[in-house]
Amino acid sequence: MNETTTSVVIIGAGVAGLTLGNFLLRNGIDCVILEKHRREYVEQRQRAGTIDSFGVRMFREWGLAEVLEGDRIPEAEGGFWIDGEEMPIETGDDNESIFCPQQVLVRNLTDVFLRAGGDLRFEAADITLDGIDDRRPVVRYAGNTRAVFGDLVAGCDGDRGISRAAIPPDALTRHSHEYGYAWLSVLAEVPAKPSGMAIHSRGLAGVISRGATASRLYLQCRLDDTVDQWPDDRIWSELAARFGTPVASGPIVSKQLVPLRSVVHTPMHHGRLYLLGDAAHIVPPMSAKGIHLALHDAEVFARAAIHRYQRNDPSLLDEYSATCLRHIWNYQAFATWITDLMHNAGDPTYAGEFRKQVARAELQRQFTSPAANRLFSELTAGTN
């Protein structure tokens, strides 16, 4: 067997894993990142596209501002429509959020990590994790022919990864909330014009940029809808109806139905294994806080690991889960509020006319109350 020994084994080369790897490497802590997919696949996955002010400032503070460069879209501005009328949006003078397609961020983080001599192993198939309760856990892959031993294991491999599954079921509690509606999520080869979100009696709609020539389209739909019920022509006509303005159309690459949910697994570590990002929690896409929470986890864990190795003090690792969860529940509260608000304000057949009018009143408050708008701006920017 081919064996390697390192300080931290990171499973998953997404945003959380690569950010953590770069933070550790820059502070003299060796690590190995294992990723089951090919590099080309990882760098082409079309996912979230917003890095909020927290993320932008975090990368700058850690000396990694360059990962925000490249083909990001700083000039893209999001709009907000209610019943076809575009509403004014105040983002605040200190909002530094940018549109940066996730595949761009992942590619840049990969380049920086490898350039600094980082050990990143793609196509690490059949990953298994053993000994997380021991002093030296081991991560095996490639049919158990290769093994990486480490002091700590960071599970950054998403909701369906092997990391969380390695924790005994009775040691983990799953907290979840189902919202009762779904989004038809569509990837199209077309610029986002218009770009933003629309509330309409027909339901919520969204057009979000994923690059200069790619957009992610969202349409609120029923949980029992099927993709076959949404041919291309219906998608484009429904978007135009909900925005109340023509929407640029083009080739559709993929479609999927996404039931909206929130999930939190507690605690976020067991033994020598620590969960980061989607491996520990899920937020609905309406909140746009998936990347934010993944980056926050990575920074908290990086500081704890650095504290452990540079000062021989594991106290921050012991507090990792509690530290992260305070922040996670704060943004789950925001995610629940904004998701219910935006959907209730539209189609009344989901929650009734009373809830629709209450949601409309709450929305109006965001445009008329400086205090309400300030709190919303803080949460949107990720600085609350």
Results as ranks from 00 to 15, higher is better:
Ala302Trp: 10
Ala361Ser: 06
Gly158Ser: 08
Ile89Met: 12
Asp347Gly: 08
Ala302His: 04
His327Glu: 15
Glu3Thr: 14
Ile51Gly: 03
Ala248His: 09
Val112Lys: 13
Pro246Ile: 06
Arg146Met: 07
Ser321Trp: 04
Asp159Arg: 14
Glu362Ser: 04
Ile98Pro: 04
Asp297Gln: 03
Ile306Asn: 06
Asn22Phe: 09
Leu34Glu: 03
Pro169Tyr: 00
Ile252Gln: 05
Asp130Phe: 05
Pro231Glu: 11
Gly78Ser: 07
Gln44Ala: 14
Asp278Ile: 11
Glu96Thr: 10
Ile29Tyr: 08
Met197Ala: 13
Ala302Asn: 10
Ile162Asp: 04
Asp159Gln: 10
Pro246His: 11
Ala142Gly: 13
Thr19Asp: 09
Asp224Ala: 06
Arg261Thr: 15
Ala65Asn: 11
Ala372Arg: 07
Gly155Ala: 14
Glu85Asp: 11
Arg115Ile: 03
Ala304Lys: 06
Thr91Asn: 04
Thr226Asp: 10
Val227Leu: 09
Pro370Cys: 07
Asp111Asn: 03
Thr19Tyr: 10
Leu293Lys: 08
Gly211Glu: 01
Asp340Lys: 15
Ser53Asn: 00
Ala294Leu: 13
Leu316Ile: 04
Pro251Ala: 15
Gln46Cys: 03
Arg57Ser: 13
Glu43Gly: 04
Glu189Leu: 10
Tyr331Ala: 04
Glu77Lys: 15
Gly70Ser: 00
Gly290Thr: 00
Gln364Asn: 14
Ala381Lys: 05
Arg234Phe: 08
Ile82Glu: 11
Asp157Trp: 01
Met342Gly: 02
Val139Asn: 03
Glu319Ala: 15
Leu219Asn: 06
Gly382Leu: 03
Thr145Tyr: 04
Asn312Ser: 15
Tyr350Trp: 15
Ala359Phe: 08
Gln364His: 11
Arg45Gln: 14
Thr380Gln: 12
Leu295Ser: 07
Val106His: 00
Tyr350Val: 15
Thr336Met: 13
Ala154Leu: 07
Asp133Tyr: 01
Val253Pro: 04
Gln220Asp: 12
Gly84Thr: 08
Ala214Met: 14
Gly196Cys: 05
Thr91Gln: 12
Ala212Pro: 08
Val207Met: 06
Arg174Met: 11
Asp52Thr: 07
Arg222Phe: 03
Val247Gly: 01
Tyr41His: 13
Gly21Met: 00
Ala351Tyr: 12
Gly180His: 08
Pro259Arg: 09
Ile82Cys: 13
Asp313Tyr: 09
Phe367Arg: 11
Cys221His: 15
Trp329Thr: 13
Met87Gln: 15
